[in-house]
Design a protein around this nucleic acid. Structure first.
Lengths: 190, 190
DNA sequence: CTAAGCATGTAAGATGTTACATGATTAT
DNA sequence: ATAATCATGTAACATCTTACATGCTTAG
């Protein structure tokens, strides 16, 4: 009875609207990518398990060989159950900060390169999140999505924006400090 | 030749000073925990592989059955090589934001609970990071650690502080918005 | 006609967690 | 004494990525 996190996402996405496995993954990529990721290698086996457990039902899809899945009543119950389990905090793995911590063996120039890359990723993310925000707000105003769902969605976008803005501010501060450090060690040393 | 990230951390920690496997894990827990995690189940096999590859050398430790490991010349070369590889960005997995995104099925009260937990974790982290900052600065002033390493260490602490502060600000904003939402759906609905 | 996108799945291998098993040393 | 900490390792299991294999449909 230990459901994977992937099963939770699949149930949650299918609860919004029935979809093919491919479309489930598209939703995850397009709407959740700032805080969640899944690959086909996880999604298809997860759907198969959920089908075996009677939590989702398959209808023949529009194309031959494809299937559109939707939640059963048991699936909706299970979804609520899973949503109420405390989120498991994932082990952090920030390769940039790891390298920066051991920056003495790497040198200030290479470290600055890493921080610049972080800054660019964060700025890119701010652009994407602004676009997502505009899209969600337009959808809300056109009445295509429930108002409550729109609000929750915007809260997750706000979280991404805060985090990305903090990353940009940190990167700028850190680049300034790296700029005044002499290259006394590391591979870039003269 | 695909070295795991764990091998990189082990090499980096042993480059600072020779240590037992147990002590390597203690360093990771005490100094890197804000952005990195490792368990014994990873560290011991990683050390065994590094020893087989001639990248670390074992000396008999102070206790019977224990060993103190240090980098060989090949190990130092390999470390520099690994530090220069681009950091692989880990797949994001934020269980709180996932639940919040599907908050309509959960209800505003349960969502507020999740956000409060996030806020408390972030505040706790700010306390821990402030203590770490004080400890590092004291070490620097006493001359126990190289000045360069201290600076890099403080940069990683600053990253954690920025991120945690952003999380607190987001949580407060989000709690205010959740407070004005009516419980029209979700398990907590009346 | 051909490339891109839609669609489903499997298999191998890497990675990671947790629990278990064992035992020495140090502090209370 | 006895609990906590130091110390090493294995085994089972879960998870995840990547590549592979296949084929339909739509747009250029």
């Amino acid at each position: 009875m230990v459901a994977s996190q992937t099963e939770l996402v699949v149930l949650a996405v299918l609860n919004v609207r029935p979809a093919t496995g491919y479309a489930v993954r598209a939703v995850v990529h397009e709407q959740l990518s700032a805080f969640w990721g899944e690959s086909f290698g996880q999604i298809y086996p997860a759907i198969a398990r959920l089908k075996d457990a009677g939590l989702v039902a398959a209808k023949a899809g529009e194309r031959p060989g494809s299937a559109t899945y939707s939640l059963t009543a048991a699936g909706r119950d299970r979804l609520r159950e899973l949503l109420q389990t405390p989120p498991q905090v994932a082990r952090p793995r920030n390769g940039t900060l790891l390298r920066l911590f051991f920056g003495e063996a790497l040198g200030p120039d290479a470290c600055a390169e890493l921080v610049r890359a972080t800054k660019e990723r964060a700025e890119q993310q701010l652009v994407e999140l602004a676009a997502a925000r505009a899209g969600v707000e337009a959808e809300r105003d056109s009445g295509e999505t429930s108002d409550a769902h729109t609000r929750y969605w915007l809260m997750t976008i706000a979280a991404g924006e805060r985090t990305a803005a903090a990353a940009v501010a940190w990167a700028e501060e850190t680049l300034a400090e790296l700029a005044v450090m002499e290259p006394t060690s590391g591979t870039a040393a003269g």
